[in-house]
Design a binder for these strands. Structure first.
Lengths: 137, 137
DNA sequence: GTAATTGCAAAAATTTTGCCTCATA
DNA sequence: TATGAGGCAAAATTTTTGCAATTAC
């Protein structure tokens, strides 16, 4: 456990925002200005392998990282892309069987998507403006 | 609807293997040898926007594409990475409400993971070899 | 004929890797 | 001191984009 790895893990525990590797790099750089991006990638990979953190493939083309390694459910905003944890836990059954595809099922990932409160607010502001504009015509 | 887009869609309908953009490119190239990768990317993007296909962020760092736009559940092999459709349908409720995070929920993605039959077979072969090796000691 | 789309190539974005140096146990 | 990890930079991988030429309607 090097200084670098310790700080990466600490910073990841501070947030619930599921940052990308680059975001983690920026967070960590405030405390360790000489750390390199390669080190961040290597440690995130190692930490995920050891089950200390989780790698999330939910945001298009880049990985996000979650300081909470326990199984939990996410919710992603389809407008701005932010990913939050969800605090009610819908249960999904049928996990410890072998499926019709011949798979031995080991677990599942559940992700909801929708619009976050900020993006919904923006929508309403847009709608209000639209209405105003129309009433002027 | 250009020839290129038509062929891309057709090829995607032929398979259930959830190919990457590059795989789609290779599939399409057999029929349209001069198509460019950029065109494949642009069309996959457009088709997904129109709801004709689905973009899947389940395989690490690159997108996969699904010719079946309907909501359905996937299963991914943690060993070889292949992604199949799942034919039993676990239901997940609580979609048309607003969650504790202030999100307006619009839908969900459910993905199981486990070991595919091929990788389980390989495991067993490995185990058998291991046993044989030990008995020799 | 006009607007949209393609092919090509360059650029951008993200992740991985090699290699030498430095830190840790 | 030896082993493993870090820093840096180059390379690899994946995706996006600009632009001239072509195609679809």
């Amino acid at each position: 456990m090097t200084k670098q790895r310790k700080v990466i893990l600490e910073e990841l525990h501070k947030v619930t925002s599921h940052p990308t590797a680059d975001m983690v790099y920026e967070m960590v750089r405030k405390r360790l200005p000489h750390i390199s991006l390669g080190t961040v990638y290597r440690n995130l990979e190692d930490l995920a392998d050891q089950g200390e953190i989780r790698k999330l493939s939910i945001d298009g083309t880049r990985m996000r990282f979650d300081g909470n390694p326990e199984e939990h459910t996410h919710i992603r905003c389809i407008v701005c892309g932010r990913v939050d944890d969800i605090h009610f836990a819908p249960t999904v059954s049928m996990q410890d069987s072998i499926s019709d595809n011949g798979y031995k099922i080991l677990g599942h990932k559940l992700e909801f998507y929708g619009k976050c409160s900020e993006c919904r607010k923006k929508d309403e502001i847009m709608k209000a403006k639209e209405k105003k504009r129309k009433s002027k015509d």
